[in-house]
Simulated assay, not measured.
Amino acid sequence: MLKVLVSCANGTGTSLMMKTTAENSLKSLEIKDFDIHTCALSGCEHTATNYDLIFCPVNFMDVFKDAMNKGVKVIGIKNILSEDEFKKKLEESGYLEDLKNK
């Protein structure tokens, strides 16, 4: 199962909107077996290595630098409501085939 984290500054409204967009994007890319969690940036930097994939606003990617160094895939998003951006970033990341096999 692919473990996904969606994180934003406060972990409430924005991350819930991002979660829905991420779910729709993953399903449309034929990733079926995943579990998505949300959190505030300040509460998840220590648990980020428990996930395979993290979506966050592009300006907060540095928060997950340690997780990236340990192999977690982190994707920065500009438009949190754009399913097309989520899909495009996943496709361009080179992670897609690896994530489908989780």
Score class of each variant (00 low, 15 high):
M17N: 08
M17R: 13
G11R: 03
A48Y: 04
G71F: 10
H37V: 05
E45G: 00
M61C: 08
M61D: 01
L29G: 14
F64W: 03
T21L: 04
S15W: 08
N50M: 11
A22N: 08
E23N: 15
S42T: 02
C56A: 13
N10R: 00
I54W: 10
N24L: 15
N24A: 15
A48T: 09
V63S: 01
F60I: 07
K73R: 10
E30R: 07
Y51T: 10
A9S: 14
T20A: 10
D52N: 15
H37Q: 10
E45N: 13
T14P: 00
F64G: 07
L41R: 11
S25L: 09
H37S: 12
N24M: 14
A40K: 04
F55R: 01
K19I: 04
S15F: 09
L53D: 02
A40S: 14
L53R: 13
L29V: 10
K65S: 07
C39M: 12
F55L: 01
V58D: 13
N24G: 15
L26R: 06
C56R: 01
L53W: 09
T47A: 09
S7W: 14
T14Y: 02
E23P: 07
A22H: 11
S25A: 15
A22V: 11
K27G: 00
C8H: 03
D33R: 11
N50R: 10
T49C: 13
G71A: 04
T12S: 05
V63N: 02
Y51Q: 14
A40R: 04
D66H: 04
A40Q: 03
D66Y: 09
L16H: 01
F55E: 02
N59G: 02
N50S: 12
Y51N: 13
G11V: 08
L26K: 06
K27C: 04
G11H: 04
H46N: 12
K19C: 04
N24E: 15
D33P: 01
M17V: 14
T49V: 13
F64Q: 01
A9T: 12
K19H: 06
K65H: 05
A67W: 03
K65T: 12
P57R: 09
N69A: 13
F60C: 09
T49Q: 08
K65P: 00
K70A: 08
M17P: 00
D33S: 04
S25D: 09
G43Q: 11
G11Y: 05
F55D: 02
N24C: 07
H46V: 07
H46Y: 06
S25N: 06
M61Q: 05
F34W: 06
